[in-house]
Simulated assay, not measured.
Amino acid sequence: MRHPLPVSALAAVALLALTACSSGNDTAGDDGELALVNDGTLTVCTNPPFEPFEYEEDGEIVGLDMAITGEIAADLGVELRPLNTGFDAIESGAALNARQCDIAASALTINEAREKNVDFTDAYFDADQGVLVASGSTVTDEAGLEGAKIGVQQATTGATWVDEQGLEGVQFEDLGLQIQSLRNGQVDVVMNDVTVLEAYAGDGLEIAFVVPTGEQYGLAVRTGNTALLDAANATLERITQDGTYDELVAEYFGTGEPTAEPTD
């Protein structure tokens, strides 16, 4: 069931767009006026590979997160510039605080710990954790994880869940390295967001089971950057109401219809 995003004043987008084009030093943006790290450009920190949210294609970073932030950039009247950034620097807020980028878009789960370091937009995607195994694996449920080496992506929900359960986690910097470690037999299973693991099911790998976590993704901005936060939320509302969000999800998930829904 779709939950519409909270109502924002869409007229604010036009005003913010004018401000974005006329200002842009790396110290402003926390006083109600929108200023970008680079004039005329919305710089987005992201961490591919994490298909279909962010991944490289023909030398460019594309995906659902880039399409959504592209809509924000268009509403502001500026260009979009994705910046490949380590996930730990994204989720900790370090990249935003260092003014490396204006906004972070990397299938970033909203949680209390991260909210101490960044400001999140309204949620735009629901997710759960999945467990990927080699075909024929005896791991079929949570009980099967006992004693297994579990490949996790550092600083993610999956890594936290494995630690909280007292299980053996092997940390990797990104999803690509996780998958490689599973294929090489370095780990027994891989845990990450089930939405992205589904892309690897087949060719000797399969989803063993799903761990419901009730996660929600949000975009992140530097704490106190209310101007950009308001602009991003206004765009999220617009694309939800005019059908753009549905079209983008269908495009990047290749399903013809959304597999998940934005939430408030």
Rank of each mutant, 00 (worst) to 15 (best):
V187E: 08
V187P: 03
V187N: 08
D188K: 14
D188L: 07
V189G: 10
V189L: 05
V189M: 10
V189Q: 10
V190R: 00
V190P: 08
V190T: 07
M191T: 14
M191Q: 15
N192R: 14
N192T: 03
D193R: 13
D193H: 15
D193I: 07
D193N: 15
D193T: 14
V194R: 04
V194I: 10
V196R: 12
V196P: 10
V196H: 07
V196E: 06
L197M: 11
L197R: 08
L197Y: 02
L197I: 12
L197P: 02
E198D: 10
A199K: 02
A199G: 01
A201M: 14
A201E: 15
A201G: 14
A201T: 09
G202R: 15
D203A: 14
D203M: 01
G204C: 04
G204R: 05
G204T: 12
L205D: 00
E206D: 12
E206W: 12
I207N: 00
A208F: 13
A208H: 13
F209E: 04
F209L: 00
F209Y: 14
F209V: 05
V210M: 06
V210G: 02
V210W: 12
V211C: 06
V211N: 03
V211W: 14
P212S: 11
P212A: 12
P212I: 02
P212G: 11
P212D: 01
G214D: 11
G214R: 15
E215Q: 13
E215D: 03
E215K: 14
Q216D: 00
Q216N: 06
Q216H: 08
Y217K: 13
G218F: 07
G218V: 04
G218I: 02
G218L: 01
G218A: 03
